[in-house]
Simulated assay, not measured.
Amino acid sequence: MSDIKDALDRINYWFQENHPVKIASLASGLSPLEIDSVLSTLSFKVSQEVREIYEWSNGYPKYDCADDWIFSYMFLLSLESAAKEAQTWVEEHEEIAVMYKYAGKPVFPICMSDIEFLAVAATDDEQTTSPVIHISEIAEISLRYTNLTAMMLTLAESYETGGLFIDRKGYIEKDEKKYAAAYRKYNSGITDLALERFLKIFPEDSSWQTVQLLHNDLYMSNTYGIEIPLNSLKTKVVNTLLNLLQDEKYDSGFSVVLVLEELRAVDALIQGLKHPSKWVRSRAAFALGKIKAFEAVEFVSQLLEDPDPVVQEAVKEALEMFKNQR
């Protein structure tokens, strides 16, 4: 049995033992031929994980299971509903279709709640996994899990350890500490995925939105305590952002500093202290205090004499954070 099917069976067992009503109407799985028939209607390919999840169960009919949330706060779409939704996104007007792509590839919804989705990115031939992304109600895309297997293992362990539980009203609640422990265990590589996506799309789109996407991804992984390894990916991204920060024509330096903060890029943030924009200087100072970069205290202190009061105030806050963190 594959890891994803094992995780799905664990989720099913937990609900059968604790809240059987919520999973009672979950459909049985499809045959490989049935799955092939539905997926053949798509203009792109999906990962092997998608096939495995639908061999396990064909989910629920769309919009017919408001209370049947088993995958955290979402329910599993039937394969037919998922394929129709995905095809709609592909066929939408160009500006809208761009919002439903991950690194330039179409995405395929797996779970939904109201008008939010969890989806996987289209894959190349023979690829077994792909990232799981969250699509918000305003069509913003951000990374959520390393892949479908990681997602299901995270949820299975969270239910078993109390990281996820059902309250008295029947809603799924979260114990943040326990859930974070499971999330870190199965999604340690998610920061590399975020960095890879940025490096792939930045040459074609160097707008502030691209930088903001990276910030959103890194912010989420940092929230769960995922460490960002010091590797070539991080180095390339930091150097790219530093070049942006030094480009006089680029006017979104504040967004760049926010990403450098999430990356704990101390040397780059120190360079930001010399930026012409008061907003960049102030946020760089604040960021250095926030991430406990004690080696930067001297550089931050020098800005106490900055001519702009906004920067002076940020420096005072940063120095206070250094003082409180010792």
Rank of each mutant, 00 (worst) to 15 (best):
K236Q: 15
T123A: 12
P20N: 03
K316C: 02
V256Q: 04
L263D: 10
A194Q: 08
I110C: 06
L77R: 12
L26Q: 08
M220Q: 11
N147G: 10
P131I: 05
Y73M: 04
F71A: 06
R326L: 01
A182K: 06
M74L: 10
E49Y: 08
R10H: 10
K290P: 04
L218S: 05
T235S: 07
A285I: 04
P106M: 13
A139I: 00
Y63K: 11
Q48I: 05
K292P: 07
Y250T: 08
E295D: 06
Y250K: 03
T146F: 09
G170Q: 04
P109V: 03
P229W: 07
F299V: 00
G225Q: 05
D308H: 15
E34P: 00
E85L: 15
I138L: 02
D306Y: 03
E17A: 12
V259E: 07
E157S: 01
A97K: 02
L76K: 13
E196D: 14
N239V: 09
D125K: 13
T161W: 03
N222M: 00
N12L: 15
Y102F: 15
D167M: 04
T41Y: 11
G189D: 14
H275A: 02
C65S: 15
F202C: 10
W69I: 08
Q16R: 14
E160H: 09
Y186E: 00
A82W: 12
D67A: 08
L241H: 07
E85A: 13
S47I: 05
N243Y: 02
W69T: 07
S136H: 03
L258P: 00
T240S: 03
L241G: 04
E52K: 14
A139F: 05
N12V: 04
N231F: 00
V132F: 09
I141C: 10
S221Y: 03
D251E: 13
L273N: 01
I35L: 01
E34R: 05
E196M: 10
